[in-house]
Design a protein around this nucleic acid. Structure first.
Length: 973
DNA sequence: CAGTGAGCGAGCTTCCGCTTGACTT
């Protein structure tokens, strides 16, 4: 009997379809994409390891040809599919009918290399009819659509993997940029900037309780005084807190409001107009991923991931249709099921006369699936599932069921009423008030579903604000009148749900990625959650400013929308992938994004310090600047610095707050008092890290660094005293005292002029004299070749042995020639001789001796830190061939060229002032002034310091540091 | 610039979109 292999994307879908297809068909799933560009060096196959473009996974010079690899976790599954494919007589690729789905089908075809006929089939709903229809109408793989997907993939890779390193250099390591996340971050930042600029304003009005002759009361609000309209929130300019120019409104002070309230109490009011208007309201469209996440958040308080997790389980168990969709479309089966249920549960009156069809709503929707709805041709009611589903799942199902059923229900009908009243205060002056009400005559779909509310019945009542029947000319009494003060509010921060909504509105991101976008921007430290609100961090401000100023077009809100248009052209055969990517990445005749040349020019141009400085409007005139530094955000005024508290969100940083933080004693915390001396013990954060001092003076009586496990905030007095007890006299050996002390390289023992490192800090307290003496017996540091005992040794025939050693960066292999660090997962314990050889052959590197000695990438990277011009040249070289880069780069760089030309020995000797001088740029203004005065003019630090406003001791320290920096820069480090 | 004794194999970080387990808590 012949066997057809059908491959879909999801296992749950495979199971369902298999039922509909019956004998002769085996249905399997790809479980999403099966191949992708290599993520990192570990994913790059041996063959391509050395290629300059391997890091990107795109061979730019060969038409941006992608390098696809089956990821390790998919290998087993793909092997299984291959085997099944080999046994089948025919293969049908039945992945989603959209860009990504087409691509998955193509990748399956490429990877499985079937020798039997292959067909492509698509369907938009999983019903027996639809599937059987689809299987009799197969088509070919649409290569244009596949090209469009490859263009999308390449663009995202180029954007992400080329722009992120700019951030590593200019802001902080491990940051990331991307088409989606960078725009999402920008949205948060721009909203926060609005909040930071916002100036609030106060306005007053009156709330009267009016009473009719029949003793019915209703609320009415003051709208005008003496014929002039009263100011409300929207009349104020959010930037100044003042009434917008050209607006003729009356602004009441609190005193005026109080006096007016008093004057109006008990006075008669006349109804000047009473308008009644009928209204109807249509039900909402059925759920798509974004609206499900929004309502999950609003009604159930679920984060996006929680909603999706529950939806996934409902889908897998066959309770709902697919949960990652951007289509509001319902199948005929679903419409029938919903209508049947409406009729049965609410009666025919509640049924929409015609079946409702919802049009495409989302920008760039791909519409491969149905809307999210209860599965099947007759919906299970939530009540019938009570025992069957767990908490989250049941509540989400209930929501989906209600929304689906409601969408086939009748419109809600009602009347809105608006009443205007006039009166006169005792104190004189006419006033106008207004009251509005809403009455629902027929709730229609509201019986089942009210957006944003968990309980339709209660929400229905809220939606009604009835007014008594009032006629023009009728008189009522202002029973009680209350003055009310209002404050204008800054625009609200985004929540997870509203950010997803905003992204979707701009066509950015896809249903399958909404939840993970939120994860990414939080993982990278661009946003934190404060309650429901997403608050951008200072790092987000710095990153966003860099991208906006230097890569503005990449973070345009319509960048994705334009990309989608171009991809549609490629999919439609009107444009080609390669020219499109060329324009984006390389630029052509001055046209296109030209990302690579742009980055090359920007690497040198972007001022990291400037980018790290964040503009805070409320600090104008205070002289205080906010910066993002290596150790987090801080404020600076002149030489004074203060860390920004972690819990301080950007819009709460006012000038008062900033001044208060700046004037705080630099984070010092008095832990207690030393009983024996009576001196205070203080915990401090210094430039070498956290430390404690005995005495609060400057200089302190004694100081000691905290150990790695210690926390500044939780350090006890007892622990502090123990730390301060160092250095410890261990004993006397060979006529010299042996001291255990903590130093800049960690804990060590000192005996005369000799020293030995200790392996743990705690040993400072525990090491005994015999142990110390044993340590001093060993050589101080190893001569080259006479290495530490290897952890393991592998022997080979016809080649030098390979040994496993433990080094600074963890375990590594070496054969004396080349070295290779072990990677994650390469267990040193069960390393075989074969594997060791493989690793060394694969990526063994000749150790780098001196800066500049190795050519190409390494040397260029070394100088990138020293000078601002070098990176530009390095980057420019990259667009040419790999070999050209290697030859060209070092010869172009002045400082390194020198290091190369001179022998290694020279690099060790002291550099002359002439060598150092070109690197003055790495110093601060003050350091530079100090160094030039001493070196160029031969003046003494003691004489120069007062002119620079420094005390002599500080200046000497600074001069030392400055010389260190200069030497480092001159040596290309 | 709180004070502190050398010197030593680097290599990796990152994108978006399609999907589920296999892990642990």
């Amino acid at each position: 009997m012949s066997k057809t292999l059908v491959i879909v994307e999801s296992p749950a879908k495979a199971k369902t379809i298999e039922k509909y297809l019956g004998k002769g068909y085996a249905v399997e799933s790809s479980i999403g994409h099966i191949r992708d560009l290599p993520r990192s060096a570990a994913d790059i196959p041996e063959k391509y390891k050395g290629k300059a473009w391997a890091r990107l996974g795109l061979d730019i010079e060969d038409g941006f040809k992608p390098l696809y690899v089956v990821s390790p976790e998919k290998r087993q599954h793909v092997a299984r599919l291959k085997k099944l494919a080999a046994d089948a007589d025919e293969i049908i690729l039945a992945t989603d009918d959209d860009r990504e789905g087409e691509s998955i089908a193509w990748h399956l075809y490429q990877e499985l290399k079937p020798k039997v006929p292959v067909k492509r089939m698509v369907f938009h709903e999983i019903t027996k009819d639809a599937i059987q229809q689809a299987i009799t109408h197969p088509r070919e793989i649409d290569t244009n659509l596949v090209e469009a997907q490859e263009a999308r993939r390449a663009l995202d890779r180029l954007y992400g993997y080329e722009v992120s390193p700019v951030l590593w250099k200019k802001v902080a390591p491990k940051l990331s940029a991307g088409r989606v996340q960078s725009v999402a971050t920008r949205m948060l930042v721009e909203r926060e900037r609005e909040r930071m600029r916002f100036v609030s304003a106060t306005w007053w009005d009156l709330l009267a309780t009016a009473q009719t002759a029949g003793q019915v009361t209703f609320p009415a609000r003051l709208t005008d005084v003496a014929g002039q309209r009263l100011a409300t929130g929207k009349d104020f300019d959010p930037l100044t807190g003042k009434i917008k120019g050209g607006t003729e409104v009356r602004l009441l002070t609190e005193a005026e409001a109080r006096s007016l309230a008093e004057g109006l109490t008990g006075e008669p009011l006349t109804v000047t107009s009473a308008e009644e208007k009928p209204f109807t309201q249509r039900p909402y469209a059925p759920f798509i991923t974004s609206t499900l996440q929004q309502e999950g958040s609003r009604k159930l308080g679920f984060a996006a991931t929680r909603t999706m997790r529950a939806a996934q389980r409902l889908y897998e168990q066959g309770y709902i249709t697919y949960m990652r969709t951007d289509s509001t479309n319902l199948s005929q089966e679903a419409i029938n099921a919903a209508r049947t249920q409406v009729k049965a549960m609410y009666g025919g009156d509640y049924l929409s006369p015609q079946p409702r069809v919802y049009a495409k709503k989302a920008k760039n929707a791909q519409e491969a699936h149905e809307a999210i709805r209860p599965a099947g041709s007759s919906f299970r009611t939530p009540d019938s599932l009570r025992g069957e589903l767990s908490g989250d799942e049941w509540r989400l199902y209930d929501l989906i069921w209600k929304r689906t059923v409601a969408c086939q229900m009748a419109d809600a009908r009602g009347r809105s009423l608006r009443v205007r009243l006039a009166g006169q205060a005792k104190t004189g002056g006419t006033v106008g008030l207004s009251a509005s009400g809403r009455t629902i005559d027929f709730p229609g779909f509201l019986r089942a579903y009210v957006e944003g509310s968990d309980d339709p019945a209660a929400a229905l009542e809220d939606r009604e604000t009835p007014l008594p029947p009032l006629k023009e000319g009728e008189r009522v009494t202002a029973e009680a009148v209350k003055p009310e003060g209002h404050e204008t509010q800054p625009p609200a921060r985004y929540t997870e749900a509203s950010l997803v909504q905003a992204l979707e509105g701009a066509g950015i991101g896809r249903p399958s990625t909404y939840a993970s976008i939120l994860g990414t921007i939080q993982d990278r430290g661009y946003a934190i959650k404060k309650g429901q609100a997403l608050v951008p961090t200072w790092t987000a401000f710095a990153t966003s400013a860099l991208l906006e100023h230097h890569f503005g077009r990449l973070v345009d809100y319509d960048f994705t929308a334009r990309m989608e248009e171009d991809l549609d052209d490629i999919a439609g055969g009107r444009a080609q992938r390669v020219p499109y990517l060329r324009r984006f990445y390389l630029g052509e005749d001055g046209e296109g994004m030209a990302l690579r040349p742009l980055i090359d020019s920007k690497m040198g141009e972007i001022d990291a310090r400037g980018i790290a400085t964040i503009y805070v409007p409320k600090l104008d005139g205070t002289g205080i600047e906010v910066r993002v530094g290596r150790y987090g955000p801080y404020m600076q005024r002149g030489e004074d610095k203060a860390n920004l508290p972690e819990d301080l969100v950007p819009d709460e940083l006012t000038s008062e707050k900033a001044n208060e933080i700046m004037s705080r004693p630099t984070g010092d915390r008095v832990i207690g008092v030393d009983e024996s001396t009576g001196h205070p013990v203080v915990a401090r954060a210094g430039r070498y890290g956290p430390y404690v001092t005995l005495g609060d003076g400057n200089p302190p009586i004694r100081s000691a660094s905290l150990f790695p496990g210690d926390e500044l905030n939780t350090l006890t007095l007892e622990r502090a005293m123990r730390l301060l007890s160092l250095p410890r006299l261990v004993g006397v050996s060979e006529g010299e005292e042996v001291w255990a002390q903590n130093g800049k390289f960690g804990p060590y023992l000192k005996r005369g002029n000799d020293s030995r490192s200790l392996s743990t800090h705690e040993q400072l307290f525990t090491v005994t004299l015999p142990e110390a003496e044993a340590l001093f017996m060993q050589p101080r540091f190893r001569a080259k070749g006479a290495a530490a005992p290897p952890l393991k040794s592998f022997e080979y025939e016809g080649r030098a042995p390979i040994v496993l050693k433990s080094g600074r960066f963890g375990p590594y292999l070496t054969d004396g020639e080349r070295n290779a660090t072990l990677r994650k997962g390469e267990e040193e314990g069960n390393l075989s001789a074969e594997r060791a050889l493989e690793i060394l052959e694969e990526r063994g590197k000749v150790p780098q001796k001196k800066p500049g000695q190795k050519s190409g990438r390494k040397a260029a990277a070394g100088t990138a830190k020293a000078g601002s011009k070098a990176p530009t040249k390095k980057a420019a070289g990259r667009t040419t061939t790999g070999t050209a880069t290697k030859k060209a780069a070092p010869s172009k760089k002045v400082p390194v060229k020198k290091a190369v030309g001179q022998a290694p020995a020279v690099a060790k000797t002291a550099l002359t002032w002439a060598d150092l001088k070109p690197h003055l740029g790495v110093l601060s203004d003050q350091e530079r002034a100090l160094v030039t005065a001493t070196r160029d003019q031969g003046r003494k630090v003691e004489d120069v310091a007062p002119g620079l406003g420094l005390d002599v001791k500080k200046a000497k320290g600074m001069a030392l540091q400055a010389n260190k920096k200069l030497n480092q820069a001159a040596r290309g480090g």
